[in-house]
Write a protein that binds this DNA or RNA. Sequence first.
DNA 1: TATGAATGAGGTTTCATTCAT
DNA 2: TATGAATGAAACCTCATTCAT
Lengths: 164, 164, 164, 164
Amino acid sequence: MEYIAKEAGIGKGTIYEYFASKERLFEEMLKFCMEEFCLGLKKAMDQGETIAEKLQYCSHYNAEYLIDHMDIVEIAMQVNLLNEELRVHFLAGQAAIRAHYMAMVKEAKVKAELRVDLDDELATFCIIGALDEFCKQRVFIDQRPLAEIDHRGIVDMILRGLKY
Amino acid sequence: MEYIAKEAGIGKGTIYEYFASKERLFEEMLKFCMEEFCLGLKKAMDQGETIAEKLQYCSHYNAEYLIDHMDIVEIAMQVNLLNEELRVHFLAGQAAIRAHYMAMVKEAKVKAELRVDLDDELATFCIIGALDEFCKQRVFIDQRPLAEIDHRGIVDMILRGLKY
Amino acid sequence: MEYIAKEAGIGKGTIYEYFASKERLFEEMLKFCMEEFCLGLKKAMDQGETIAEKLQYCSHYNAEYLIDHMDIVEIAMQVNLLNEELRVHFLAGQAAIRAHYMAMVKEAKVKAELRVDLDDELATFCIIGALDEFCKQRVFIDQRPLAEIDHRGIVDMILRGLKY
Amino acid sequence: MEYIAKEAGIGKGTIYEYFASKERLFEEMLKFCMEEFCLGLKKAMDQGETIAEKLQYCSHYNAEYLIDHMDIVEIAMQVNLLNEELRVHFLAGQAAIRAHYMAMVKEAKVKAELRVDLDDELATFCIIGALDEFCKQRVFIDQRPLAEIDHRGIVDMILRGLKY
DNA sequence: TATGAATGAGGTTTCATTCAT
DNA sequence: TATGAATGAAACCTCATTCAT
């Protein structure tokens, strides 16, 4: 808390004027970030016309957010270790994100961009998982700057699949 | 440390006969777990004949491991917040896992099970990401028991892709 | 201080316009209460004609004050733990109370209501101690309402003594 | 807590090996002191043959205890301000003391040392109150050393009463 | 070698006080 | 004059680590 106060340029006690405890501060931060990310993702998604475009915008947004908020994402990852209330917030956020992707999948099926026999949920897992894994590698491990990340390939592969 | 000692049925001080610090204990545990997971994954993979079979075994192994070691996986997730040395171990473990999957992809291309024009790395992201996301949902959120998790669907979707 | 300000319906900072510190506020409050109690006690005492009547009025006043100011009395009790200056005020107040009782004793000796060989100080201890102990029990522990407290018995016993 | 640890010649954390919290430490101390006082009072009481002797021993013990444990008594007085659990312990201790005195009164009535028409409870109030008030004055205010305190007078007055 | 009582740095939280408005 | 947001010293408590046995 002392460190956070110093970073914020305020006194240690001032934090407690706005957050009842360290845990509540965490909770609010998490809620804020998840909402922010969720809104941003929706916006990114809506910039695309076709599903391929949408996914590329999503991938780009993923990478951008991860680069800008690397520390927060790392903290959010440990949230499972915190109390039950925080976990609930976190899972709710993840559910919201999944819902956006799933809506996109359904719409794409209607527009005949995706196979109509797809299981919506499984398709959503493929999309989120592949994009996240790609993003994690490019940003965390390769530490590549945003401009150098090419999203077309991963999106293409998700859509076309791997089979011969 | 006291809790760990009690669980291990030894004295608190005895831990320090074997590990210099809590951090080192963490490190060893992480190393051990990643190696164990890695070996198990390889074994699971090798049980399958075709790439589809292999991936189903991998997905099953993923779920099994997560169920049995839920607490360790959660701790591993927070590893990013620990010191640099631990992070290195963690990333090395992830790299090893990725290598296994990539070798599998390459072999499948040789056997003409996968498209030969695939980018190996991107294909690996799709596979790992989708399997992980699927497993996370089924185990963490749906809290479904191992026997009730159906892996065929997710594997089929990864291989066939989503496009119409 | 925040709580006090809220109860008083003023801002927290406003208290400091009237009292230099929490300690001073305490001091003033204590002084005020002791003076108020002292005056009230004198008045009660003077309502009685005989010593027996006087003591009954005192006992009634004791109980009344304790019921109405239970919280303040509790705070006053902790005053010993506060700084030397407060202690002085407190002791001065007690001395004043004692003085009232002792004057009453002396007057009663003159009027031949009390034995003339009495040590004034010791008689005062008997009176104050017995009345206080009685009051403490009836109000704090028995939690009896004012109207139900019978003062005659205790006064009679003080005056007549215990011996066969 | 730091101060207590220092006084005890141990580390701050060591206290917490023996007491779960500051409040529990308080509680144990209070319980210990009340029991100690109670036992000592009973012993003192039993040293006397007649009621007058018993009361003189009690008065002496009161003064002795107050001199030796002045700080603890002051802390115990503020106990009303602490939590409910502590208050219960405190009141239980006071009740035990009262019980000892009341038993003494009853016995003295049987032995025809005290008037048989006495109300036991009221007599107990007279005794405890007068002895406490006397002790408080001599020790706290007069600050007289133990040897110089004369207990005969107060006891005599309690027994004989004040009336002409 | 194994132990756990003792330690104290460091963490969270409170609250009397200040001061800009 | 009145305010209450900001402050930080100081309080309580935890827990990784040590060391005498």
